[in-house]
Design a binder for these strands. Sequence first.
DNA 1: GGTTAAGCGAGACGGTACGTCAAGTCTTCCC
DNA 2: GGGAAGACTTGACGTACCGTCTCGCTTAACC
Lengths: 199, 199, 199, 199
Amino acid sequence: MPAASPQPRRPRSGSRRDETARLAVLHAADDLLAEHGFGALTVEAIARRAGVAKQTIYRWWPSKVEILLDTLIEDSDKHLPVPTEKPTAESIRGYLRGFERFLTSNPAGKVLLALIAEAQHDPDTAKSFHKRYLGPRREQEREMFARGTDAGEVSPRIGPDATIDALIGPIVYCALTGSSIPSGLVDTLVEDLLRPRSN
Amino acid sequence: MPAASPQPRRPRSGSRRDETARLAVLHAADDLLAEHGFGALTVEAIARRAGVAKQTIYRWWPSKVEILLDTLIEDSDKHLPVPTEKPTAESIRGYLRGFERFLTSNPAGKVLLALIAEAQHDPDTAKSFHKRYLGPRREQEREMFARGTDAGEVSPRIGPDATIDALIGPIVYCALTGSSIPSGLVDTLVEDLLRPRSN
Amino acid sequence: MPAASPQPRRPRSGSRRDETARLAVLHAADDLLAEHGFGALTVEAIARRAGVAKQTIYRWWPSKVEILLDTLIEDSDKHLPVPTEKPTAESIRGYLRGFERFLTSNPAGKVLLALIAEAQHDPDTAKSFHKRYLGPRREQEREMFARGTDAGEVSPRIGPDATIDALIGPIVYCALTGSSIPSGLVDTLVEDLLRPRSN
Amino acid sequence: MPAASPQPRRPRSGSRRDETARLAVLHAADDLLAEHGFGALTVEAIARRAGVAKQTIYRWWPSKVEILLDTLIEDSDKHLPVPTEKPTAESIRGYLRGFERFLTSNPAGKVLLALIAEAQHDPDTAKSFHKRYLGPRREQEREMFARGTDAGEVSPRIGPDATIDALIGPIVYCALTGSSIPSGLVDTLVEDLLRPRSN
DNA sequence: GGTTAAGCGAGACGGTACGTCAAGTCTTCCC
DNA sequence: GGGAAGACTTGACGTACCGTCTCGCTTAACC
């Protein structure tokens, strides 16, 4: 899952990439972020913690941000899949609840917040973050809404992107400001935005 | 306005603080953030740009974050006052529109985004950011809503904090992800959340 | 004595250079060379041994070679002055004996050998070594011979540079190859080259 | 001509050593030294230039110094043989002239200088350099002088080693310092040291 | 009106981490 | 089994900022 080589190259000879080292780096980065915050997340610390040489990290990842992106994508796909089959208002609400839990309770949620943050500081991070995470995920979410709309399950009052921003935005914002997501917020938004007003 | 001295000290003798230097630092920080991003915002660069000794910065600000907070608070009060007089649904919508413009068009908006970001990386920043900016502003916003509710102008369907998060969240989220705020989003949210459903 | 500033700059303000640090670096370099050889002479090791930050070394010396040059020049001037007053064949022989002892017994002699060696590997070293050490010293030696010749004390059979090379060369060569200087070598050369053949 | 195997070994089975690779490495090392100096002479560069795997180099040579020694010994035997037959003062002078030319004009001369230099930096190099080059050559030179003395061709005023050092030393010293060998130096030394004074 | 304490520009200092490079070892595959 | 390819650990490189410190000058209140 190196950032630089979507399809891992197949050298005719020579050693293959050490999968143990790859996982050690990913977990070390994850753990350090969770334990000591992004400030302590230096490449040298990751290398130390992973029991890996610094050079091994630089060989495979252009920056620590790409390491975090790798872990985020793996964890995100695993713990927070976008519901694709028969999406109902209910399953969408479930997805948002899952997102809420992912951000507040899962260590991997911290990774997402850290990447949103780092994207503000560094244009390269922003670019890569969009290309590898935000873009693909938004695409899946758009599809989810499209299917739900086609099936008549939901009738969004505004465009799909606007709807997603309106639903996701408050959750992310609360997580970023460290405040708990007010109960009822998600339910109310789902109800208001996905169902046509009856009047 | 220094973060470190709530009650400005009164030396018995000696020079008073150099206002020119203070403003030079504030503007240098602002300019550097706008021009080269948070990554280039080092204390040494600020000092260089401001034509000021590094020590002068450390004498008055405990960190570069506090410099940004100072500029943010000044700009925020100046360009984005919370409407306190007779708040109507219309004036609230105007406030949100102003917020949208502040984040996307005003250089000072970058400062807010940078601080939200940095708060993810550093707990001290988070603390100070809440205490000096988010907290007071949220308090004013709560009052605004309370007055509007008392006057019967608005009838929020959910609690004041939840309402604010639901309105502010998407705007901030779009700004953070660099996407433009979908037209209609603010209007729809204001309509849905501040007016009771007629059914 | 910093290599970079022949006439030490006099900043109008700011701290002056820390003489303690300067000496610590010089001695650390000297000691490391003597103890572990040029191979162990890294900037990081010098900094460690001197109890000094690496940047402090880079601030004042462009490379570790210049550090060695500084120590060599100081030690050389101190322990191996070129005899300037009334040079006789005897005093010249004494100078060569002193040179022999300097190269074989004095730790500073190792510095000279190391610089001769490093000059073979790196053109910049060669340049600096000639400009700061070999050139000036050769100039002094030429003057010494000229005075001796004028006073009729010595009558070199070949030109001054050739004479010096013929006298110094074997001593340096023996030191470089680690062999002891054969007894009688210096005496014979002085006798042969500085006195006219009587036939 | 690897350091470890004077006579190419005859393995009972398996491939023999690739002579092409051996020569490619030797020439690559030689060329790189001549073109870019000792500083650019890394094992990786040699491997790259020779079109050979790094491991192939490490399999046959313990260090890059041994590579250089191999080339030096070959070139030295080829271009600068010690005159063994009927050595006269004249043939010895010719040998010294040849040595002078070897050092200043022949690319292989750079190898000798580089090895003398590297021997100052690293004890292992010094040891190997003496054992494989300096020692054997000195032995041949001693024999040359002994034959000449026995035949009455030359009458050294000082011991053989001292004489050789006195003759070789200045030439090497001038080459090391990059200065041209003064004309007349060699002639005068040969005349003075190899012929008895007539008085 | 001289004293004196603070502010200030300048910059040296001990540090930490950066991202790069080469060294030397080890592993895998191909011939 | 030799050799090409190349991943791995190690450690030094030279740079950028960090936050602290000391220096000598300027400035303004106080006596």
